[in-house]
C-alpha cells in the first residue's frame, strides 16, 4: 500500500498554487481522504501533488449578504460544528455529521469531497437541496457554478483543468424552513448507498417550496424535480416520494441492485420529508 513516487509542493499562497496547477500532471491534495487511498491503490499516480494545506485562509466560514460562505478547505468537522453553519445552514451541518468517522471528518474537506465527486458522497445531496453556488478559480478565471450544474457524472464535475474549488456559498435558510437528511450507510465504508436531503417551506399548512437532493443512487447526485413539483402542487409526501428517481440512471453493485437503490431513495425521501415537515414551522 505504498503510492508511486511523486514530487510534492506545498504552496504558501493561492496564486502560487494556481500557477502550479496551470500546467503538468499535478493533482490537488486537500484533506487526502479520497486521493491518498486512491494513490495507495495506484488508481491515481500523479507526477506531482500540490498540497493546499499550507495556504492560510482557505477554510474560513463567514456570513454576508444572505449567504454563508464556506472555504473549500474547511474540514467536515468544522462544517459539522461551526455555529454559523449550524444556525444558518443546519442541513449542511447535519449532513457533514454523517460523513465517515471522526478521524475522517477531522481531515476531509468540503472542497476536496465535492471536487472528487464520489457518487456515494454525502455532501452533494445537501448542496443540491440548498441550491449552493460553488466558486471555482484558476490562474486566469473566476466563476460560479450552481450545484445542479456541478456534478456531471461519477468522479466528474464541471471543473476544468487548472481550476480549484475556492468556496461554497449557501443561501441562509429561513428559520421557518424544515430540513432532513436520511441515509443508508454502507456497513463497511460508511458511504451513502443512498442519501436524501430535503428542504421545505410551509405556509398556512401547505408546502410552498420543496428541494430534494439524492446521492448514492446514480452515477451522480441529482435533484428530484418531479417530486419537488408534486409537493409544491399539494401532493401528499408519500405520493411525491414515490416518483423520486424516476427516469434517473441507478447504480448496481454487489451490495445493492439498481432497483433496490431506487426503492431506498423513495423510502428515504419519505423519511427525510417527514423529518423536514416535523421541523418546519
Amino acid at each position: 500500500m505504498i503510492p508511486q513516487a511523486f514530487d510534492y509542493s506545498a504552496p504558501q499562497s493561492l496564486e502560487e498554487a494556481l500557477g502550479l496547477l496551470a500546467s503538468g500532471d499535478r493533482k490537488i491534495l486537500a484533506g487526502g481522504m479520497s486521493l491518498i487511498p486512491m494513490m495507495k491503490l495506484r488508481l491515481a499516480a500523479p507526477a506531482e501533488v500540490v498540497d493546499l494545506g499550507r495556504i492560510a485562509g482557505l477554510d474560513g466560514i463567514t456570513e454576508a449578504g444572505g449567504f454563508v460562505h464556506i472555504g473549500a478547505m474547511a474540514t467536515h468537522h468544522t462544517v459539522e460544528t461551526s455555529p454559523a453553519v449550524r444556525a444558518s445552514c443546519p442541513l449542511l451541518a447535519e449532513t457533514a455529521s454523517h460523513i465517515g468517522d471522526v478521524q475522517v471528518r477531522n481531515m476531509g474537506t468540503l472542497g476536496g469531497s465535492i471536487a472528487h465527486a464520489d457518487p456515494a458522497a454525502d455532501y452533494p445531496a445537501a448542496l443540491l437541496a440548498l441550491e449552493a453556488e460553488i466558486r471555482v478559480v484558476s490562474a486566469h478565471s473566476d466563476r460560479t457554478v450552481n450545484a445542479a450544474d456541478f456534478f456531471l457524472d461519477a468522479f466528474t464535475t464541471a471543473l476544468e483543468p487548472g481550476e480549484i474549488v475556492l468556496e461554497v456559498r449557501l443561501p441562509v435558510e429561513q428559520s421557518s424552513e424544515g430540513y432532513g437528511y436520511e441515509k443508508v450507510a454502507h456497513p463497511a465504508s460508511g458511504f451513502a448507498v443512498v442519501g436524501v436531503a430535503v428542504r421545505i417551506t410551509r405556509e398556512h399548512g401547505r408546502i410552498i417550496m420543496a428541494r430534494i437532493g439524492v446521492t448514492g443512487m446514480g452515477p451522480h447526485a441529482f435533484r428530484a424535480r418531479a417530486a419537488e413539483r408534486l409537493l409544491e402542487e399539494g401532493a401528499a409526501p408519500e405520493r411525491a416520494a414515490a416518483v423520486v428517481g424516476e427516469g434517473e440512471e441507478a447504480n448496481s453493485d454487489l451490495y445493492a441492485s439498481a432497483d433496490y437503490r431506487r426503492h431506498l431513495a423513495r423510502i428515504h425521501a419519505r423519511r427525510a420529508l417527514a423529518v423536514a415537515l416535523s421541523r418546519a414551522s
Binding site: K40, Q103, V104, N106
Partner: peptide
C-alpha cells in the same frame, strides 16, 4: 485503508488516521 483506526494519532490535537496522511 483508513477503515480500522489502529493507526490513530493526534495531529494538532485532533484524531487522524496516520495511514492516510503523508
Amino acid at each position: 485503508t483508513s477503515i480500522c483506526g489502529a493507526c490513530t494519532v493526534m495531529l494538532q490535537g485532533r484524531a487522524v488516521k496516520s495511514c492516510t496522511m503523508f
